[in-house]
Amino acid sequence: TLFNCILGQLTPSGGEVKLDGKLVTGLRPAELNKLGVSRTFQLLQVFPKLSVRENLILAGQEHQGNMASRLVGRSDAGLTEPANQMIGFFKLDHLA
């Protein structure tokens, strides 16, 4: 229930939700997503035929640019280096 209130899926019956001091209670999930707040569900293998790096890049592309830039821009949307940093941070180099 708490996560659903924070993520705009439920309106709290009391209190308020703030992000960086800004009131976000009642914002829709799409509006929260623009502020960098989103929810993912744990799936052990989102795209099992893709590498760890490719899965990270694919997940990040949703937050990069717009539809036109995704269609004609770089295939990795400039996310290879950030993906590599995450892989290193979580010590997944052997799986990348």
Rank of each mutant, 00 (worst) to 15 (best):
T1C: 08
F3E: 00
N4K: 11
N4R: 13
C5W: 05
I6M: 10
I6H: 05
L7W: 04
L7R: 06
L10E: 00
P12W: 04
P12F: 09
S13K: 15
G15E: 05
G15C: 07
G15V: 04
E16T: 15
E16H: 08
V17M: 01
V17A: 04
V17T: 01
K18G: 15
L19A: 07
L19F: 03
L19I: 01
D20P: 15
D20I: 08
G21S: 02
K22T: 09
K22A: 06
L23H: 05
T25P: 04
T25E: 03
G26M: 10
G26C: 07
L27F: 01
R28N: 05
R28W: 08
P29G: 03
E31G: 07
L32E: 09
L32W: 01
L32H: 05
K34D: 04
L35H: 03
L35N: 14
L35Y: 08
G36Q: 05
G36Y: 04
G36V: 05
S38Y: 05
T40C: 12
F41T: 15
Q42C: 09
V46N: 14
V46C: 14
F47Y: 11
F47H: 15
L50E: 12
L50R: 06
S51F: 01
V52E: 07
R53P: 03
R53A: 07
E54P: 13
N55H: 02
L56N: 06
A59C: 06
A59M: 02
G60L: 02
G60V: 02
Q61P: 00
Q61H: 13
E62P: 00
E62A: 13
H63Y: 04
Q64E: 08
Q64R: 04
N66K: 03
M67H: 13
A68R: 07
S69M: 10
L71M: 13
G73I: 02
R74H: 14
D76Y: 00
G78D: 15
G78I: 12
T80G: 07
T80P: 10
T80M: 13
T80A: 15
E81P: 14
E81H: 11
E81W: 10
E81Q: 15
P82W: 06
N84A: 04
M86W: 11
I87F: 11
F89K: 13
F90G: 08
F90E: 06
D93K: 12
D93G: 02
D93W: 05
D93L: 10
D93Q: 02
D93S: 11
H94N: 11
L95K: 14
A96G: 04
A96Q: 07
